[in-house]
């Protein structure tokens, strides 16, 4: 019978990505697709959905940013420590069928699934433009990894400490004017993703976004991550949605529900 029990593994390697972001590498065949997530469990502390930031034969990685008690506890872990997970769950980014260049647009640690996608796209022989925005140079992620993978990397920082000073969406906007891009993939703050949908719509370029809500079960049962008014659970029918579907969700960029189900605007 169908079963998604926890697998508990020892961390085989850690990579410090920025002052408060760390990647954890595991020797395990996860078979995840870019955009999918796992429910990560730190026994005795809690469980949260974390998107897969890299996956190839026999190895996968998760990248965690310290934002609350759970993630900060995970950041303290070292090689050899144990973590549990169930999954992979959810929908994934889909590369366009026809050959053509793609662009990814990540805001902050939203770049995690996009770095994974970029590697998959490169392996499939695609040209990839990897755009990332962050507050400062220190917070930019995966620059070296993406350059080594043969991806065109473009950075924007709020303070201009690296790349252009301004918004990552401006880079996307210019890129769509200058290059023929067959599809755009984005993950990050909803306001950025909404802006990206607008830019892509104008240029008639398809776009996929990653949208998340408070998740508990991860398997489409508890209903905690259902969104208005579509009523779909983002853990099962998301997190990856096409831009048109995202725009039909009235709470996109407007509100979300907390652990009790209360609306937070």
């Amino acid at each position: 019978m169908k079963n998604d029990e926890f697998t508990v593994l020892r961390i085989s390697e850690t990579v410090s990505e920025s002052p408060d972001v760390k990647s954890f590498i595991f020797d395990y065949d996860l078979n995840a697709k870019p955009g999918q997530f796992v429910m990560l469990w730190l026994p005795g502390v809690g469980e949260k959905p974390i998107s897969v930031s890299g996956c190839k034969e026999g190895k996968f990685q998760l990248t965690v940013c310290g934002v609350g008690p759970f993630s900060n506890a995970v950041l303290k872990l070292q090689k050899g420590d144990k973590l549990g997970f169930r999954g992979p769950f959810g929908t994934s980014y889909s590369l366009p069928k026809k050959n053509g260049a793609i662009a990814t647009l990540g805001g902050g640690y939203g770049s995690c699934p996009l770095a994974f996608l970029a590697e998959v796209a490169i392996a499939a022989g695609r040209t990839v433009y990897f755009i990332e925005g962050a507050r400062t140079k220190e917070r930019l992620l995966f620059g070296k990894r993406m350059s080594e993978a043969g991806v065109h990397v473009h950075f924007a920082t709020d303070d201009g400490s690296f790349g252009i000073k301004g918004y990552a969406t401006d880079i996307l906007s210019n890129l769509l004017k200058e290059e023929k891009i067959s599809k755009v993939f984005t993950c990050g703050p909803e306001i950025m993703m909404k802006k990206a949908i607008g830019i892509c719509e104008e240029k008639k370029v398809p776009v996929e976004v990653s949208m998340e809500r408070y998740m508990k079960c991860g398997i489409g049962v508890c209903g905690q991550c259902a969104v208005d008014d579509l009523g779909i659970c983002l853990c099962r029918e998301g997190p990856i949605l096409d831009g048109k579907t995202a725009m039909k969700i009235k709470e996109f960029c407007a509100y979300h529900r907390d652990a009790s189900g209360k609306i937070i605007k």
Binding site: G220, C222, G223, D228, G231, C233, R257
Partner: peptide, 8 residues
């Protein structure tokens, strides 16, 4: 099951 919201 799935009953947290009206839309669901």
């Amino acid at each position: 099951i799935l009953g947290v919201t009206g839309a669901s």
